[in-house]
């Protein structure tokens, strides 16, 4: 587990247009409490935590960002590009630069651990000879080499979470978005990634954990509470 992940060793991505923020959110409304607007930025290699209770809109916000969709109100810039002004062809390119870890993991249960990761690479138009070595390396990094051929549905909770992290990294993202990651080892992996220079955006309902992470925090108000 002391190995440096593949993604931490990748070449520095092309310089971002404007400034070096991988994500910039401004004047975003409709999340958190009524009237609350959200603004934050994550520099390259930075970390940010969205904290909020159930129903505060954490998941919707993260999925909006990860899907590179323009917000109904406000402005989101991903890798220096305003989501309002990008075309449909550009959107998949931006999504490939994001590694998403879903709250419910969304693993393909009947596919092996190896194939779950390979699927994400295939979706990004990568050829097997181009990703196989990285899949093996990621499986080793998350400690699943011996379970490479085991169906995701047969892995235990810990194994499944590790697999979700490995899958999120296969396309060498510059930003990893994790929706309510659970378990110490997952946090350790995310922390290692961040130390390796990958920007992290985490949503959690655990404010203590957010404070301990030492990252900047955006607190979403309870939807029932007027801010």
């Amino acid at each position: 587990m002391s190995r440096t992940p593949v993604n931490a060793r990748i070449e520095t991505p092309a310089p971002l247009s404007g400034d070096s923020d991988v994500l910039r959110v401004e004047g975003l409304a409709g999340y958190g409490g009524p009237g609350q607007t959200i603004a934050f930025a994550i520099p390259a290699g930075g970390a940010h935590v969205i904290a909020g209770g159930p129903g505060s809109g954490k998941t919707s916000l993260l999925e909006l960002i990860a899907a590179a969709r323009p917000p109904p109100q406000g402005r989101i810039e991903l890798f220096g590009k305003n989501l309002e002004s990008i075309g449909p062809r550009e959107r998949p390119r931006l999504r490939r630069r994001i590694g998403m870890i879903f709250h419910d993991l969304r693993l393909v249960e009947d596919m092996s651990a190896h194939d779950n990761i390979a699927l994400a690479a295939l979706a990004a138009d990568r050829a097997p000879q181009n990703y196989e070595a990285e899949v093996a390396e990621l499986l080793a990094w998350v400690g699943l080499t011996r379970k490479a051929d085991v169906a995701a549905g047969s892995l235990n909770g810990e194994g499944r979470r590790r697999l979700a992290v490995a899958r999120a990294l296969i396309n060498r993202p510059e930003l990893v978005v994790a929706d309510e990651p659970f378990g110490d080892s997952t946090f350790k992996l995310l922390s290692d990634l961040n130390s390796g220079g990958i920007a992290i955006l985490i949503a959690t309902r655990d404010l203590d954990l957010a404070v301990n992470a030492g990252a900047e925090i955006t607190q979403l108000a309870d939807p029932g509470v007027r801010s």
Partner: peptide, 16 residues
């Protein structure tokens, strides 16, 4: 649709 949405999140283009 579930699989399609997952692939879209990974950056799959329409052609894929």
């Amino acid at each position: 649709a579930e699989r399609v949405l997952l692939l879209i999140q990974f950056g799959a283009r329409d052609a894929a």
